[in-house]
């Protein structure tokens, strides 16, 4: 079935071109570059920013904050989720805290983040980490908690002890869910970095949008938004693509 993806690509392109067309017609009607600059104006602004080189710096700053926060969140959330799934003592102690902290949106952490870490990168690291933590934790936990009893029993009667059960049975059982968590977490983290930069940073795509808004450079605001959307989609697609190497068994079936 090689025609199906190809068909989707064509349909997707038609959809995007249609979107730009509607947008362009709307800008002609509204005729106000501050209220709604057209796609052509946006591409001009995009080229300008690229040539100027400023865009790359902002993209780099945002990406760095997301990557650092995301890595911190993953390094804490995955082991914690596995430990809670494996130990009823830890589960009893810590699960209520997680349940209570989870509904607090990352934005609500910004005041504390600024108080604790000042301005610049550190509060952004904190916000992106908080945003990524909960999806990663919740998915990893549910994945590890649904490990098959037969797999555990089989491993135990083949001589596996606690550590081996955790690393060789719980972890790979949970990996598909962990991966889902990582994908969602990265997306959340990316969304949160923009929010954090609107308020606390002096660089990054969020800062670019905020600054351009104040200067009434609406075309640059829209460039920022589009770049955010594009990079976010690219990150999700990359993780989906990498999945076949992380979990080869999920992609090989009876020929």
């Amino acid at each position: 079935m090689p025609s199906l993806p190809k068909r989707n690509v064509v349909l997707g392109l038609i959809g995007i071109l249609g979107f730009f067309a509607v947008w362009q017609v709307a800008t002609w009607r509204i005729h106000n570059a501050v209220l709604l600059p057209g796609p052509l104006a946006m591409f001009e602004a995009l080229c300008g920013l690229c040539v100027e080189g400023r865009l790359w710096g902002d993209i780099g700053a945002s990406l760095r904050r997301v990557v650092v926060g995301f890595l911190i969140a993953s390094a804490v959330a995955v082991p914690l989720a596995l430990a809670l799934a494996a130990s009823s003592l830890l589960r009893g102690l810590l699960l209520p805290i997680v349940t209570f902290l989870r509904p607090i949106p990352p934005i609500a952490w910004i005041p504390l983040a600024i108080l604790w870490f000042g301005l610049g990168d550190p509060p952004s690291f904190y916000i992106t980490a908080v945003a990524a933590f909960f999806p990663i934790f919740i998915n990893s936990f549910s994945g590890a908690a649904t490990v098959e009893a037969d797999h555990l029993n089989a491993a135990r009667c083949l001589g596996a002890e606690r550590w081996a059960l955790l690393m060789r049975i719980f972890l790979p059982s949970a990996l598909p869910s962990i991966w889902t968590g990582l994908r969602i977490g990265l997306g959340q983290s990316w969304m949160a970095v923009v929010t954090a930069e609107l308020i606390t940073a002096q660089s990054g795509l969020g800062y670019l949008i905020q600054l351009s808004r104040l200067n009434l450079d609406t075309d640059v605001v829209i460039v920022g938004m589009c770049v955010i959307g594009f990079i976010g989609a690219l990150m999700t697609a990359t993780l989906s693509y990498v999945e076949r190497w992380v979990m080869p068994w999920r992609h090989r079936h009876v020929d």
């Binding site: 037969d150 029993n153 089989a154």
Partner: peptide
Amino acid sequence: PSARCPVVFQHHSLFPWM
């Protein structure tokens, strides 16, 4: 459970990730 008496199960007990 111990490695002195392993079990062969009816199904779904192979580790799919190995």
